[in-house]
């Protein structure tokens, strides 16, 4: 019984770590631009697909991964530059449609440039499960969770010590004041898109050996990551991480003990519950309307 619980927990934390990374991307972009980037899930897809195809073309895995992340970063930057920046000041709903359009566009491009099939990526360090109290732990799960922890730690250092990280944080708190002290808020917007795209791509690469990857893999992951960001409170990166883990574990437990049929509904039920109790997320700042 407890080995079963442990199995569900492992499964939940692994999936939750992916949601956390995607949610982190939503948060970073939202912080510096007040934009919800619905194309965030596509970077997960780009990371996985690009790695698979670069490896098929003969690149060794580490090189393929580095190039895939670089590709995502460039596309993220371009998205910010050519799609979001020109539309600054448009209503929220228009921006939502632009980013959804971007996600459809990127998916279409992936189907053309690569293909529409499912691809598998070899696990980083074998696929022989490790036995923990009767539950099977995949080495790749360790990579996923470890990768998440490292990225979170690195971001923490970046935001609190690096000059440019502090500038991003300042922009998030008060864009006008940040601009007044000489921070380029435009630059911060582009940087945040590139950074979020890179993190999304890493998530996609880490998870690909477990879930398989294909052009449409980003759709549900994007929505779940958005849920994670909202549960944690938009614009709070650590909140997104907590939100991701909460959603992932709740899903695995539901699938295990209640019904796998409603697994996907759990994330959204949590969202509705959280929003009813705290309309700006668990750890979010309250927004006030300026008249």
């Amino acid at each position: 019984m407890s080995s079963q619980f442990l199995q569900f927990l492992i499964s939940g934390i692994t999936v939750g770590a992916t949601y956390a990374l995607v949610g982190l991307g939503f948060s970073i972009v939202y912080n510096s631009s007040q934009v919800i980037n619905f194309a965030q899930g596509e970077f997960v897809m780009i990371g996985g697909m690009a790695t698979v195809f670069l490896m098929a073309a003969g690149a060794p895995m580490p090189l393929a991964i580095a190039l895939a992340v670089l590709l995502a970063v460039v596309i993220g930057f371009a998205l910010g530059k050519f799609a979001i920046e020109p539309a600054r000041g448009a209503p929220v709903v228009s921006i939502i449609i632009i980013t959804i359009g971007a996600s459809i566009f990127l998916r279409g491009a992936a189907m053309l440039v690569w293909d529409r099939n499912l691809h598998h990526m070899p696990a980083f360090s074998g696929s022989d499960p490790i036995d923990i109290g009767g539950a099977a732990l995949l080495p790749q799960s360790v990579w996923v969770v470890g990768g998440m922890v490292i990225i979170v730690a690195a971001l923490q250092v970046f935001f609190s010590h690096a000059r440019i990280g502090k500038a991003m944080l300042a922009t998030a708190f008060n864009p006008l004041a940040a601009q007044l002290v000489g921070i380029s808020t435009r630059g911060m917007l582009l940087l945040s898109f590139a950074l979020a795209a890179g993190i999304g791509a890493i998530a996609g690469i880490l998870i690909a050996p477990i879930t398989l990857t294909y052009a449409g893999v980003g759709i549900m992951l994007g929505l779940k990551g958005f849920s994670a960001a909202i549960v944690g409170g938009l614009g709070n990166p650590m909140g997104a991480v907590a939100g991701g883990l909460v959603v992932g574990i709740a899903e695995a437990m539901t699938a295990g003990y209640i019904s796998s049929a409603y697994k996907d509904a759990v994330a959204f039920l949590i969202i509705l519950a959280v929003l009813l109790i705290r309309p700006s997320g668990l750890f979010g700042r309250r927004e006030s309307e300026r008249v």
Partner: peptide, 17 residues
């Protein structure tokens, strides 16, 4: 007798049962 949803990427809970 177990089922999984369309588009599921992890069947370990059902298989564990």
């Amino acid at each position: 007798d177990e089922t999984h949803g369309a588009g599921d990427t992890d069947m370990t809970p059902q298989l564990t049962k």
